[in-house]
Computed example of a mutant assay.
Amino acid sequence: MRVLYDEDYGEDGSTLVVYEISHYEGERGRFRVLAFSDGAAQGVMDLDHPDRIVFEYPRAILHLMETHIPDFNEAYVIGLGIGTLPARLRDKRVKVAEIDPRVKEISSRYFGYPLANVDVGDGRSLLEKEPNLAHDFVVLDAFTEKDTPLHLLSESFFRLCGDKLNERGALLMNLFGRGGGDALIRAAHTTLRTVFPHACCFELPQTGAADKRNILLMGAWQPIHFREKEMAGFIAFQPEEGYIIQDRK
């Protein structure tokens, strides 16, 4: 492993690391990784094929976007990572909110993110400044070392997203959990259904009862359509009922 960056601490004490490895998930090659200090990868680039989308979840999100609104043009993305999703949407009008200025610098310097569409700040606060009915999609892909911040999963936040979406629009979320029995996933799905009339959850096949994995949630004003064979391995599931997430006072 060759470490390229590991020197700065964020306001919450988190450390970001950029390194290169010769194997990833059993595949041999040259890979550059953005990770938290606990080893959780936030983005992976195949240096031999830089246009390849390595993670499954951005491929599934792109399919949901293209299937739900084939002619979509406006999207608001909360969470930059290495810039995989917004870079792939460069022919659309996309705005990105990223709370950590280090990530904005790293995505450009180490992963070649080419666009000048990233605002640094809290995604919810920045989204509040957007015009109502302006976007086809809001995409939430924001993590700290602990998890997705709860103020980005509350009923009030989902209502804010609903205000910013047009009549065809949808909210897409990449979360991390243990499937339908996970308390946070259950709560996020239950909360989503208090705002949007249509909601779906998708997960990768389970490898172990305790294994956390990417979970996709989608809330929409219109019925949700998808082709499972194009969901990069994600399958639809129905979480158990959970509590409604409210903002802390």
Rank of each mutant, 00 (worst) to 15 (best):
G81F: 07
L80E: 03
L80V: 02
Y76M: 09
D71A: 15
A75E: 08
T84M: 03
T67S: 13
T67E: 12
E66W: 06
E66K: 13
E74D: 14
I61Y: 00
T84R: 02
A75Q: 11
R90E: 13
V77P: 01
L80S: 03
L62I: 13
L62A: 06
P70Q: 10
A87C: 08
M65Y: 05
M65D: 07
P86N: 04
A75F: 12
F72Y: 15
T67I: 01
H68I: 00
M65V: 06
P86K: 05
L64A: 00
I61C: 00
R88V: 14
A87I: 02
D91Y: 12
D71Q: 15
I78G: 05
V77D: 02
E66N: 15
L85C: 08
L85R: 06
M65Q: 09
H68D: 00
P86C: 02
L64S: 01
L85V: 15
A75K: 09
G83W: 05
T67K: 11
D71T: 15
K92E: 05
L80D: 02
L80C: 02
I61R: 00
R88N: 12
V77L: 10
G79H: 09
H63G: 01
R88M: 14
V77M: 12
L85Y: 04
T84G: 03
D91T: 15
I82Y: 10
L64M: 12
A87D: 10
L80F: 03
A60T: 05
I82G: 10
E74W: 14
F72N: 11
H63S: 01
L80A: 04
T84F: 03
N73P: 04
V77K: 01
M65S: 06
R88Y: 14
K92Q: 05
I82N: 10
L80W: 01
I69T: 09
D71C: 14
R90K: 12
I78Y: 10
D71M: 13
G83F: 05
Y76P: 08
A60P: 06
H68W: 00
R90H: 12
A60Q: 07
P86I: 02
T84Q: 04
R88P: 06
M65G: 05
I78E: 10
I78D: 08
I61K: 00
H63A: 01
D71W: 12
H68Y: 01
A60L: 05
Y76L: 07
G81K: 13
Y76R: 10
R90T: 11
H63C: 01
D91Q: 13
G79F: 06
R90Y: 11
M65H: 06
P86G: 02
P86W: 03
G83Q: 08
L80I: 04
I78T: 07
E66P: 01
E66Q: 15
I82C: 10
E74V: 07
L64I: 00
L62H: 04
A75L: 12
F72P: 09
M65I: 07
D71E: 15
A60N: 08
G81I: 10
I61T: 02
I69C: 08
R88F: 14
L64G: 00
G83K: 08
I82A: 09
